[in-house]
């Protein structure tokens, strides 16, 4: 099939950027979305042009590196799917596809479709961990964890940190990302000692980074490749409010 792409091109943070139109022929329905861009890039390189820069690595939906707004939807039309796992059979001959980077102040564009998501790392640095130096751990069976808690913790822990939640949120909020980690650790007995301080520190860091406020629109969870549930945000709010009340 033949497609028209409109791709955001921006040479660096100081460039204004614009959508550039490319015609691309003979796209196989079995190609992945990124392979389709590979083909475009091979062509651009041979023509001496700059290839479209985009983040990608594992190409199996788990590293969280790929990040494209495709026709106004984070990661494109297929539910629970990262851009790298999206295949071209979802498109038909003659389609026009608009590809943009994630848009948020805390995610500045580095180049083309590549954005800087280090704000997420700083949110984790603020408290997204359990303080346990190597070698100091008790036996793994010392503290049983109810299966349901462990499973719910796992569901939250599957977050891949791609940032689609921020990209899709009309408020540019990072609540789902932050809440996923707070929920994961807050549900486990090992995470209890730091539960309150963790929630407070992470939420404050999230606000400091300049993410928007949550209005519970649910857009985040709808585009989340791992389907992180929205009630993680309720849990984050509960932990945050409790911690704030305690320490005033």
């Amino acid at each position: 099939m033949n497609l028209t792409l409109k791709v955001w091109r921006q040479s660096g943070p100081d460039d204004d950027g614009r959508l550039v139109r490319y015609e691309i022929e003979d796209v196989s329905p079995d190609m992945s979305f990124l392979e389709m861009l590979d083909v475009l890039n091979e062509r651009l390189i041979l023509a001496g042009d700059d290839p479209v820069a985009f983040d990608h690595d594992c190409r199996e939906g788990i590293c969280g590196m790929c990040s494209m707004m495709i026709d106004g939807v984070a990661h494109g039309p297929q539910k629970n799917t990262t851009t790298c796992q999206l295949h071209m059979r979802h498109y038909k001959d003659g389609d026009t596809i608009v590809i943009e980077p994630w848009r948020a102040r805390p995610f500045p564009v580095v180049k083309d479709l590549v954005v800087d998501r280090s704000a997420f790392d700083r949110i984790i640095q603020a408290g997204g961990f359990i303080s346990v130096p190597a070698g100091s751990a008790p036996d793994a069976h010392a503290t049983p964890v109810p299966k349901l808690d462990a499973d719910a913790a796992f569901d939250a822990a599957t977050c891949i940190g791609c940032g689609a939640c921020v990209a899709a949120c009309p408020n540019g909020s990072a609540s789902l990302f932050t809440a996923a980690k707070i929920t994961h650790l807050g549900l486990l007995p090992q995470g209890q000692p730091e539960r309150g301080s963790r929630a407070r520190a992470m939420v404050e860091q999230m606000d400091e980074e300049g993410f928007g406020g949550c209005t519970n629109t649910g857009e985040c969870t709808a585009v989340c490749p791992k389907g992180i549930p929205l009630d993680t945000i309720a849990r984050m709010n509960a932990d945050y409010l409790r911690a704030s009340r305690k320490s005033g």
């Binding site: 008790p138 109810p146 299966k147 913790a153 822990a157 994961h184």
Partner: peptide, 16 residues
């Protein structure tokens, strides 16, 4: 032991 202490959510049985 280390991973569990860090909060790695390994699969568990009903007994925890």
């Amino acid at each position: 032991d280390q991973a569990v202490a860090q909060g790695v959510p390994f699969a568990r049985e009903y007994g925890g």
